[in-house]
Amino acid sequence: MSDTTAGRYAEVNGINLYYETHGSGRPMMLLHGGLGSGDMFAPILPTLAARRQVILVDLQGHGRTADIDRPIDIALMADDIAALIDHLGLDRPDVVGYSLGGGVALQTAVRHPEKVGRLVSASAHVRTDAIPAEMREQQGQVSAAAAEFMKDTPMYQTYVKVAPRPEDFPRLLDKIGESMAHDFDLTEEVRGLQVPTLIVAGDADMAPPSHYVEVFKLLDGGLRDGGWMGEGRPKGGHALAILPGLTHYNLFASPLFAAVTLAFVDPEETSWES
């Protein structure tokens, strides 16, 4: 495939997954955050698609992809992405994700390393306790009961505009809330990553910069001087980007996010890889 195509659906892994393709070149899967859709990347999509073929996916229950009878679970959604890669006949595309999509992207690389070229995981903490207790308490309050109060939010208005079943919004809130209520620790999964990985966060993200430095250390990063020729950089070609002036709620639309993503996924144009 090349150039922009209208949205399509793929029957993969038991779900009718919506995706669009934009641009041409080596493929990049782009995965959105929770309660969003691929549309949230509109501010940076032209920049990415000018260099790469971008496959923009709406994850389970989000955007134009209808929900199915299973939990919102990043491991299950990672299997959706792996199945879509096979369906499209892609050869090890890069997988880029933000927030919920960052977790899905990471799990895709963990569970299906042979299908992934490079991984960019943005604003996706890897342990429950990485975010403040008050934030976890707020997440625990996400449920269908909040649907009425969210009707004036951009998230709800975008959802009802494109969702196959707009009445499913309360159900999505229930599932997202249930998903966030579970403790998790992906430390060992991160430590075992087999594909070059870029960890990205805003300097005022949901989890502090120190957490993402810890994640980078799991990938052999930040443990020694990099050396004049980059000989001391992480052995797997991993990298870390803490982006200035950004939060969890605007990083996905930032030109800085687009810039560091393109620099990392096109290593022939950078000196990041040792």
Score class of each variant (00 low, 15 high):
178 E>R: 00
91 D>P: 02
112 H>A: 11
104 V>R: 11
160 V>E: 00
42 A>C: 05
87 H>D: 11
239 A>N: 09
102 G>P: 08
105 A>K: 15
173 L>M: 14
6 A>Y: 03
265 V>W: 03
235 K>M: 09
254 S>W: 09
243 L>I: 11
8 R>T: 12
5 T>A: 01
216 F>I: 04
225 D>I: 09
160 V>R: 00
73 D>A: 08
240 L>F: 10
144 A>W: 12
266 D>S: 13
67 D>C: 00
138 Q>G: 12
71 P>T: 14
74 I>M: 02
241 A>D: 08
9 Y>D: 01
39 D>V: 14
84 L>C: 10
215 V>M: 08
54 V>L: 02
189 E>H: 06
207 A>D: 01
69 D>L: 08
2 S>G: 04
208 P>S: 11
212 Y>C: 11
23 G>W: 09
210 S>L: 13
231 E>F: 02
14 G>C: 08
208 P>C: 12
54 V>M: 13
101 G>K: 12
26 R>G: 07
34 G>P: 03
6 A>F: 04
61 G>M: 10
69 D>M: 05
37 S>L: 06
4 T>Y: 01
191 R>D: 02
7 G>F: 07
42 A>W: 08
177 G>S: 04
112 H>K: 14
26 R>Q: 14
194 Q>A: 14
12 V>W: 05
47 T>S: 07
78 A>H: 03
260 V>E: 07
236 G>N: 07
145 A>L: 04
208 P>A: 14
88 L>W: 02
57 V>D: 01
62 H>C: 09
51 R>D: 09
152 D>A: 13
46 P>A: 10
201 A>Y: 05
77 M>N: 11
77 M>I: 10
67 D>N: 13
141 Q>C: 00
194 Q>C: 00
213 V>S: 05
111 R>M: 03
122 A>Y: 00
211 H>W: 02
216 F>L: 00
213 V>H: 13
243 L>G: 09
125 H>G: 04
212 Y>D: 11
137 E>M: 03
150 M>S: 12
232 G>M: 07
91 D>C: 04
168 D>W: 02
22 H>W: 12
188 E>Y: 02
3 D>M: 08
20 E>V: 13
120 V>M: 06
15 I>N: 05
270 T>A: 03
39 D>H: 15
46 P>F: 14
170 P>S: 11
138 Q>W: 05
15 I>Y: 03
250 N>H: 06
107 Q>K: 15
150 M>I: 11
26 R>I: 03
90 L>R: 12
232 G>K: 07
201 A>F: 05
53 Q>G: 02
83 A>Q: 10
122 A>I: 10
126 V>E: 00
169 F>M: 05
79 D>Q: 13
94 D>C: 08
153 T>I: 04
58 D>K: 06
66 A>H: 00
146 A>H: 07
51 R>C: 06
134 E>K: 14
81 I>R: 06
261 T>S: 14
47 T>D: 10
232 G>Y: 10
89 G>F: 03
109 A>N: 05
212 Y>L: 01
201 A>C: 15
91 D>T: 15
38 G>W: 09
191 R>A: 15
266 D>G: 04
141 Q>H: 15
116 V>L: 04
148 E>P: 01
